[in-house]
C-alpha cells in the first residue's frame, strides 16, 4: 500500500470510529429508564395514555430503532443536538459559547507541556546521570505524582492568596471594560494558573518520554556514523537525534489528547474557568442529557481528529511508513 492509500485508510477508519461513537451515544440514551415522552408527560402531570402516545408520535419514538438511529445520525450531521432541558436553548449554542475557552486553555497547556517537556527531557538526556538530570527527573516525578486538583489548589494558595500575583478564578475580571488590548492582557493573566497547572502534569510525561527516547537514539549506530563523518554536533543533534526521538512523542501526544480534555474538566472546576469541561460537570450534576451527549460527541470528534492528524504527521516525519501495518 502506498502512503496515500495508508492515509485514506486511516481517514476511513476515523469515520468508522465516529459512527461507533454515535451508536454508543444513542444506546446510552435508550438505556435510561423510560423515554423522553413519559418524562415530559410526567412533568406536565397528565399521565393520559392517549396524550403520551401522541407525544411519542411527535417525538418519533414510535418508529423502529434503526430508523430512529438514522434520524439521530442525520440530525447530528446538521449539528442539531436538540435542546438543553435546563436552559431551553439549542445545545449547540451553549457549547459554541464555551468551546473557545476550553480550546484556549487546553491548547495553551498542551503547547507548554510539549515545548518544555521536550526541552527539559533533551537536557536531562544530554546530561544523563548528572545532578542536573536527577533534579529534572525529580521535578517531573513530583508533578506527575501530584493530583491535578491538588497542584491547582496549591498554585492558588501560593500565587493568589499569599503572593497575590495572579487571579485565582474565572477568565476575566468582573466589571472590567477597557480596550481590546487590555482585555487580551486580562484573559492572559487569568489563563496562567489553570494552563500551568494542567500543563505541568503533562510536561512531566513528555519529559520522561523524551529523555528515554533521546537516550535510546543517542546509542544508535547511525549517530556514531554521523560523528565519524565529522558532522557538527548541533546538526547531529537536530537532524539525527531529535527528529528520530520525536516519533514516539507524536504517538504519545495524540494519545494524551483525550486525557487532556478530561483533565480540563477538573481544572475548569477548580479555577471556575467558563469552558466545556465545567459545562460537562454542571450538565452531569443536573442530568441535562442532551447537553451531556453533545459534549461527549464533540470531544470524541476532537480526539479522533487529533489522532488522525497524528497519523498524517507521522507519515510526514518518517518516510519508512507506507505499509498498512
Amino acid at each position: 500500500m502506498d502512503r496515500l492509500g495508508f492515509l485514506t485508510g486511516r481517514a476511513a477508519r476515523a469515520v468508522l470510529i465516529l459512527f461507533g461513537v454515535i451508536v454508543l451515544n444513542f444506546v446510552l440514551l435508550r438505556l435510561a429508564p423510560g423515554d423522553a415522552a413519559s418524562v415530559l408527560a410526567g412533568d406536565q402531570g397528565a399521565a393520559d395514555p392517549a396524550f403520551v402516545a401522541e407525544l411519542r408520535h411527535d417525538l418519533g419514538l414510535d418508529r423502529s430503532v434503526p430508523e430512529q438511529l438514522w434520524i439521530y445520525t442525520k440530525s447530528l450531521a446538521r449539528l442539531d443536538f436538540g435542546q438543553s432541558y435546563r436552559d431551553q436553548r439549542p445545545v449547540v449554542d451553549i457549547i459554541a459559547e464555551r468551546l473557545p475557552a476550553t480550546l484556549l486553555l487546553t491548547l495553551t497547556a498542551f503547547c507548554f507541556a510539549l515545548g518544555t517537556g521536550i526541552a527539559l527531557g533533551s537536557i536531562a538526556a544530554r546530561h544523563a546521570g548528572s545532578l542536573l538530570d536527577t533534579v529534572l527527573t525529580g521535578i517531573s516525578v513530583m508533578f506527575f505524582a501530584m493530583p491535578l486538583f491538588w497542584t491547582g489548589l496549591m498554585a492558588i494558595l501560593l500565587f493568589s492568596v499569599w503572593l497575590n500575583w495572579l487571579p485565582s478564578y474565572g477568565m476575566q475580571t468582573v466589571g472590567e471594560g477597557g480596550s481590546d488590548l487590555s482585555l487580551v492582557g486580562d484573559v492572559a493573566v487569568h489563563l496562567i494558573l489553570p494552563a500551568l497547572t494542567l500543563g505541568l502534569f503533562y510536561m512531566a510525561i513528555y519529559m520522561r518520554v523524551t529523555r528515554a527516547s533521546v537516550l535510546d537514539v543517542l546509542d544508535r549506530d547511525f549517530v556514531r556514523t554521523a560523528r565519524a563523518k565529522g558532522l557538527k554536533p548541533g546538526l547531529i543533534w537536530r537532524q539525527h537525534v531529535l527528529r528520530n526521538a520525536l516519533l514516539p512523542i507524536i504517538t504519545f501526544a495524540s494519545l494524551q489528547a483525550g486525557q487532556l480534555i478530561g483533565g480540563s474538566i477538573l481544572i475548569e472546576t477548580v479555577f471556575a474557568w467558563p469552558g466545556v469541561g465545567r459545562l460537562a460537570f454542571d450538565a452531569l450534576m443536573q442530568r441535562d442529557y442532551n447537553l451531556l451527549l453533545a459534549i461527549f460527541f464533540i470531544t470524541s470528534t476532537i480526539v479522533v481528529v487529533i489522532n488522525l492528524a497524528a497519523d498524517f504527521l507521522y507519515v510526514a516525519a518518517d518516510p519508512r511508513i507506507e505499509m498498512g501495518a
Binding site: 547511525f222 556514523t225 565519524a228 516525519a317
Partner: peptide, 14 residues
C-alpha cells in the same frame, strides 16, 4: 569510516 551493519549505521529518515 565504514562500519559493520550498514542498515543500523545509515540514518533511516534521510
Amino acid at each position: 569510516f565504514v562500519f559493520q551493519d550498514p542498515l543500523s549505521n545509515l540514518y533511516p529518515l534521510k
